[in-house]
């Protein structure tokens, strides 16, 4: 399944309420939980935070891609958050992160997981697109931008 097909407005939050790294991850995991996409919220949180301990998933140019593998999701699950003010995510370039893609998948769905991450890697190369997403006012606008509407 393509990333684009997985993202719904209900899984997009603009702006995130969180102001720090763990809070942002918690909020994004909470969105998946509220949408019924996870069977064990704490297990998902642990998986994502465990990955962050190995190295930050904060990339350059304000994008962060926290991710993890866990049996606590039946399928690939994605939540998107925007923090226009920026959150210190320990990013590569030392700059605050503003656009967050949280991706979790079960261990036996590595193919879709990698496909989704690859799509984000491609999207992140377009600074204009990322800027437009960060400036979006509504979740539906973010979905539209990601779909290329």
């Amino acid at each position: 399944m393509a990333l684009i097909e997985s993202i719904e407005a209900s899984l997009v939050r603009v702006p995130l309420a969180a102001t720090d790294k763990e809070g942002a991850i918690r909020e994004l995991v909470g969105m998946l939980s509220e949408a019924g996409r996870v069977s064990d919220r704490e297990a998902v949180l642990r998986a994502v935070l465990a990955r962050e301990t190995l190295g930050s998933t904060g990339l350059a140019d304000g994008i962060a891609v926290p991710h993890g593998k866990t049996d606590a999701v039946p399928d690939l699950a994605i939540a998107v958050g925007v923090a226009p003010g920026g959150i210190d995510f320990g990013a590569l370039d030392g700059q605050p992160s503003r656009l967050f893609f949280l991706i979790v998948a079960p261990p036996d769905k590595s193919g879709p997981h990698i496909q989704a991450l690859s799509e984000i890697a491609r999207l992140s190369r377009s600074k204009a697109l990322c800027r437009a997403i960060v400036n979006a006012r509504e979740p539906a606008d973010v979905v539209g931008l990601l779909r290329g509407d």
């Binding site: 190995l54 990339l59 350059a60 891609v65 890697a121």
Partner: peptide, 17 residues
């Protein structure tokens, strides 16, 4: 798809491990 894996390392989304 090892090319995709390589791209993810290059994009710093994946660690080598």
């Amino acid at each position: 798809n090892t090319r995709a894996l390589g791209e993810l390392v290059q994009a710093h989304i994946f660690l080598e491990a």
